[in-house]
């Protein structure tokens, strides 16, 4: 998709107007209050970005989010295939999974903090739990979506069950799994930040908590802006990975030809 120069211009203008409005409010009616000016936030942002502590906590945040996402993907796909392939398993777990699904991981945060303490392990565990259920459920759906004719064909060609699983069931479940991971990825980042902010886990969440508790509002705003940029990167990166890994699937084929 090509962006028109005019569109770009209005978008930039909108952004500038928003920033200008913020600056006006911060220097005018709310001067000296808790709302920092754009300039002070920018100065702070520039000062924070060059410190080593900032990059350490940024790397910690991204690392925990990615590790949590990866481990929950591995566990979720394995469990999802298990649950999806055996009917008794599916019936036994459906009520439990449906009950747990709408409950966000922040609910058990106090317990996890109590057991594991304010550590990176605690943050990882919350991310792992938070991403696990959606990945399991999507994998189950994906396994069920496998074409029965393709399965029967594979069986009549004499493929063994593990081979069918690997060559027929898993590939047809891949788009479901890909979607689940793409949807879960921003969640992983959010949970890491929440674990730092509320549970004292390491990373940017903790830095935000310290800035807020210390009344250092320009740094607080600067960090929130960093998180916004990081979130956009995360979304873009996961979509790109999904497109690369699923380039053969029909929903991506058209895009490849364009």
């Amino acid at each position: 998709m090509k962006i028109q120069p005019k569109t770009l211009l209005t978008s930039a203008a909108g952004f500038l107007v928003a920033v200008a409005a913020w600056q006006l409010v911060a220097t005018g009616p709310m001067a000296g209050g808790p709302l920092p000016t754009v300039t002070s936030v920018a100065v702070n942002l520039a000062a924070v970005v060059v410190t080593e502590a900032f990059w350490t906590s940024l790397a910690t945040t991204v690392g925990i989010a990615l590790l949590g996402l990866l481990t929950s993907a591995v566990a979720g796909i394995a469990l999802g295939i298990l649950v999806g392939s055996f009917e008794p398993f599916r019936y036994a777990t459906v009520a439990v999974l449906e009950f747990l699904k709408p409950i966000p991981p922040i609910v058990i945060l106090p317990l996890v903090v109590l057991v594991l303490g304010p550590t990176g392990q605690m943050s990882w565990f919350l991310v792992f739990l938070g991403c696990l259920l959606p990945i399991i459920m999507q994998t189950v759906d994906g396994v069920h979506d496998a074409d029965p004719v393709a399965r029967d064909t594979a069986r009549s060609y004499g493929l063994k069950e593990p081979e069918i699983l690997l060559r027929v069931v898993l590939p047809s479940a891949m788009p479901f799994i890909g979607t689940a991971i793409r949807v879960a990825a921003p969640g992983a980042l959010i949970i890491t930040v929440v674990a730092g902010l509320l549970g004292g886990g390491p990373g940017l969440g903790q830095s935000i908590y310290q800035a807020q508790a210390g009344g250092d509002y320009p740094t607080l705003y600067a960090l929130v802006i960093v998180l916004g940029v990081l979130g956009m990167f995360f979304q873009g990166a996961t979509s790109a990975v999904e497109r690369r890994m699923l380039h053969w699937h029909e929903s991506f084929r058209e895009a490849a030809h364009r």
């Binding site: 952004f15 808790p34 959010i190 929440v194 902010l197 935000i208 916004g228 956009m232």
Partner: peptide, 28 residues
Amino acid sequence: VARNVLEPLIHFLRSIPPVALVPIFISL
């Protein structure tokens, strides 16, 4: 016009983890 003006802003704001906005509201 509204779309062109607001869309980039919205995409940025929605990328911020929602809970990170809570400290800002506390300060305000």
